[in-house]
Simulated assay, not measured.
Amino acid sequence: MKIKYLIVAVLLIAGVSSCKVLSNKAYNALVAERDSLSTRTTSLEAQVAQLQADTARIHRAIADLKGQYNALNDNYAQANKKLDKTNSRVSELSSDLQKREARLKEVEDILKRRDEATNALKAKLQQALLGFQQSGLTVDIRNGKVYVSLADKLLFPSGSINIDDKGKAALKQLALVLNKEPDINIAVEGHTDTKKVINLGQIKDNWDLSVLRATSVTRYLTETENVDPKRLTATGKGQFQPIDPGTTPDALAKNRRIEIVLTPKLDELYNLITK
């Protein structure tokens, strides 16, 4: 509206300043021009209002977009932080996994060498004790250990803890192999059947009999055959670890035995596990 009034004022001033009396025609022309200018002014004012409204709307849209951008930026930064933490954790786990795989490989290699050594020891013992295998001697592997099982009749007279000559001959051949294998630990186990011990003097029961027979074998190996006593352990198992749970004479005979358990030293493996 200000533009309209300005135009009218200009026209009036121009008319007055000319100091002329306008004709009807000239006057009508001026009025027509004024109306035209008024119409244009109204249109321009409408356009200005529309542009102002559009500008305000665009400003709001820009503000909204900036807000969304900032929110996305914050989310992106947080996601980056999480990604960095995840990558760091993945890197740690990968490094730990590589170390564990390396240790596992070392353990597997040691166990493989142990199994190879155990099989080689079994073969040597079987060869050295071949002549006694018909008399109740067996050599086998259980749980990574070599078991030399000697029937009681091969080592002792009935009800005795004193080793006879045949038993000494078998132990002598065994000691020849053991003295060449210093990295083998030796456990001597005495086993009996379920029959109760009767009238054996100082021997009160099957526990006593199994222990004393085990110590007799241990003493012979160390004192006569010079096996290092630090390598040996003597134990009595009584009747509680039978080979055959039956009660036939054959089953009872199998259970009366001395078992010499040979275990490769696993210091290397122990040190690796306890790191």
Rank of each mutant, 00 (worst) to 15 (best):
Ala175His: 05
Asp84Pro: 02
Asp84Ser: 08
Gln202Lys: 05
Asp115Lys: 06
Asn255Asp: 15
Pro229Lys: 06
Val211Arg: 10
Ser210Leu: 00
Lys122Ala: 02
Lys145Val: 12
Asn80Gln: 14
Leu266Ser: 09
Asp228Arg: 01
Tyr76Ala: 15
Lys204Val: 04
Asp165Lys: 09
Leu72Glu: 11
Asp250Trp: 01
Phe240Asp: 14
Ile198Cys: 02
His59Val: 09
Ala46Thr: 11
Lys82Arg: 00
Leu150Gly: 11
Lys196Trp: 03
Asn73Ala: 13
Ile13Leu: 13
Asn80Ile: 10
Asp140Ala: 12
Pro229Trp: 09
Thr86Asn: 02
Leu83Asn: 05
Thr215Asn: 04
Pro245Asn: 05
Arg142Pro: 03
Thr41Asn: 06
Asp165Leu: 02
Lys85Asn: 08
Ile3Arg: 09
Gly201Ser: 03
Ala117Gly: 12
Thr263Lys: 06
Pro157His: 11
Ala14Tyr: 08
Glu108Gln: 10
Lys145Gln: 11
Ala53Glu: 14
Ser17Ile: 15
Gly67Arg: 02
Thr248Gln: 15
Leu252Pro: 05
Leu209Asn: 03
Ala46Ile: 08
Leu266Arg: 02
Leu150Asn: 04
Ile7Trp: 13
Ile258Val: 07
His191Thr: 06
Asp115Val: 04
Asp84Arg: 12
Arg103Phe: 10
Gln239Cys: 09
Leu171Ser: 04
Leu209Gln: 03
Thr248Tyr: 10
Leu130Gly: 10
Tyr147Phe: 15
Pro245Ile: 13
Leu269Asp: 00
Lys275Gly: 13
Asp228His: 00
Leu150Arg: 00
Phe156Asp: 00
Ile62Ala: 04
Ser36Met: 14
Gly238Arg: 11
Ile243Leu: 15
Gly236Met: 00
Val107Glu: 11
Lys105Glu: 07
Arg256Asp: 11
Tyr69Leu: 03
Ser216Trp: 08
Lys20Glu: 09
Asp164Leu: 08
Ile58Gln: 06
Phe156Ser: 01
Leu209Ala: 03
Ala14His: 11
Ile198Val: 14
Thr215Glu: 02
Thr86Ile: 02
Ala53Cys: 05
Thr233Pro: 07
Lys168Ala: 12
Asp228Glu: 13
Ile243Phe: 03
Lys99Gly: 09
His191Gln: 05
Val10Ala: 05
Lys105Gln: 14
Ser38His: 06
Leu97His: 10
Leu178Phe: 04
Pro242Thr: 10
Ala56Glu: 15
Ser158Ala: 13
Lys172Leu: 10
Ala175Gln: 02
Glu225Val: 07
Gln47Phe: 14
Ile163Met: 12
Val31Tyr: 08
Tyr76Gln: 07
His191Glu: 03
Gln241His: 07
Asp165Cys: 02
Leu104Phe: 12
Thr138Asp: 06
Gln127Lys: 01
Leu129Gly: 06
Glu33Tyr: 09
Asp164Lys: 11
Gly131Lys: 13
Arg114Ser: 01
Ala14Thr: 09
Arg219Gln: 12
Asn199Pro: 01
Gly236Val: 04
Thr39Phe: 15
Lys237Ile: 07
Lys82Gly: 00
Thr222Ser: 06
Leu44Glu: 03
Asp96Ala: 12
Gly15Ala: 15
Glu259Met: 13
Thr55Arg: 12
Asp74Ser: 04
Thr192Glu: 09
Ser17Lys: 03
Ile110Lys: 05
Lys172Gln: 10
Gln134Thr: 13
Asn143Pro: 04
Ala169Asp: 13
Lys25His: 06
Ser158Glu: 12
His59Phe: 13
His59Asp: 12
Arg103Trp: 05
Lys168Gln: 15
Arg213Lys: 06
Leu272Asp: 07
